[in-house]
Design a protein around this nucleic acid. Structure first.
Lengths: 232, 232
DNA sequence: TCAAAAGTGTTGCGAGTACACCCATGG
DNA sequence: CCATGGGTGTACTCGCAACACTTTTGA
């Protein structure tokens, strides 16, 4: 990735990543602080230009490794949308394919090359922070995609470790949606939906009450019928 | 658009369009027959390279005009997904942003430049036809998007003229989904869903039975609760 | 009068919501 | 014993599927 600020001729293709995880029960996104112009010092989504012969997903995984020091192991990567309005990048015409990456317990990032700083931000506290380029729009788009995919897919489990309790799963929904859900109804719905959860014989260590049974992700990927955000 | 078959260096960005309409109660897609290599003589989705400084949507509308002789008036254009696997185009590394365009009563296409032929195909009869590049995948992706968006948006009306009957609207769902729906239940659902339909005082000419009231599209864009494909 | 299409009524079922209530553990 | 969280039972409501039925036209 050429991070100089000179204008470049031709159309360039980039990927931008919205990396989401849960930290302390809040939805967090990984931002990097730009070391170079344009938008030097501003916070931005990790991203980079794709190289000739490189796959879009491949480029996304490369950026994940370079700028976020995250391996491809425990993340769910998915294309969101492509942004290509001329002028969105002052260096020239850049068409950027936005991805979202979801993971469980992602580590604090090491800062990569061309990056002044990198850290997790709670999406709630991000309202006032001006982001570089059109990344505020890209971020909104990815978050809305994640929120809606929780409704009709089993994607929520990607925010959790391999073994988890129903309460933890409910916590994912509550954190991502910013709502509260009825514990009993959620338990029934989650455990009775075919393919969502696989019951284990073990229990988690009690946290002040009755110990919760452990589950792991089931085989299914779609939730039918879906789990709807109530206050919609 | 350079349609020669020589390999080009650098990464190129294109748009590919899945233009859908209803003809004789069947979902049809517009394909063009390629005049030049690669895939000379094969049927393909209309598409073209974007020019520097050109918007993605702008490029899509330009292709619609050039290759399908369709104005931007009566089509709903929407981005679907971006395909960028190296090798999908033998000329070099081409990243293609797929769009779907939906319209009512779209005219028989004039063939544009670099196009040997252009015509509508019923998507049903397309199973055996080999398409150029990865366009079979792109087409499937767009059709599935259109099918699912009928469920939770008011998009179905874009397949109809400005004034239409509830039966015609039901016909859209039946054609696109390839199902049959209960006429009475559909009528209730469509007319009672807030923002979907706006009732007019006129009736359509009878077609062998009681004349149907005319409606036009309402203000709303989302269907809540959604209209689900039953056999899912 | 009959066929055909538009539109309404009715009933039963499946699923969600609210909330009461029991279960199992630690303090 | 009590507090806390896990998990179940139950009553109410809402929306849909099925399908019978009425309305309004042309032949």
């Amino acid at each position: 990735m050429d991070s100089s600020s000179e204008t470049r001729s031709g159309i360039h293709v980039a990927v931008d990543l919205t990396v989401l995880t849960l930290r302390d029960g809040a939805l967090n996104v990984l931002l990097i602080q730009r070391e170079d112009d344009p938008h030097r010092g501003a916070w931005a989504l990790p991203g980079g230009f794709i190289e000739e012969g490189e796959d879009l997903e491949g480029a996304a995984y490369r950026v994940l490794a370079d700028e976020a020091s995250l391996g491809s192991g425990a993340v769910h990567l998915e294309q969101v949308r492509t942004f290509g309005t001329p002028g969105r990048d002052p260096r020239g015409h850049v068409v950027s394919v936005a991805f979202m990456a979801l993971g469980a317990n992602l580590p604090a990032p090491r800062r990569g090359e061309d990056v002044a700083d990198a850290r997790w931000w709670a999406v709630e506290e991000l309202a006032d922070v001006p982001l570089a380029f059109d990344h505020a729009t890209v971020l909104d788009c990815a978050i809305e995609r994640a929120r809606s995919k929780l409704e009709y897919t089993t994607l929520a489990v990607t925010f959790l470790p391999e073994e988890f309790t129903v309460s933890q799963l409910r916590g994912v929904y509550e954190s991502v949606w910013g709502t509260t859900l009825d514990a009993g109804n959620f338990h029934r719905k989650a455990t009775r939906t075919e393919g969502f959860l696989e019951e284990l014989d073990r229990h988690a260590a009690p946290t002040g009450g009755r110990p919760a049974r452990l589950y792991r992700a089931g085989e299914g990927t779609s939730l039918m019928p879906p789990l709807l955000r109530s206050g919609d």
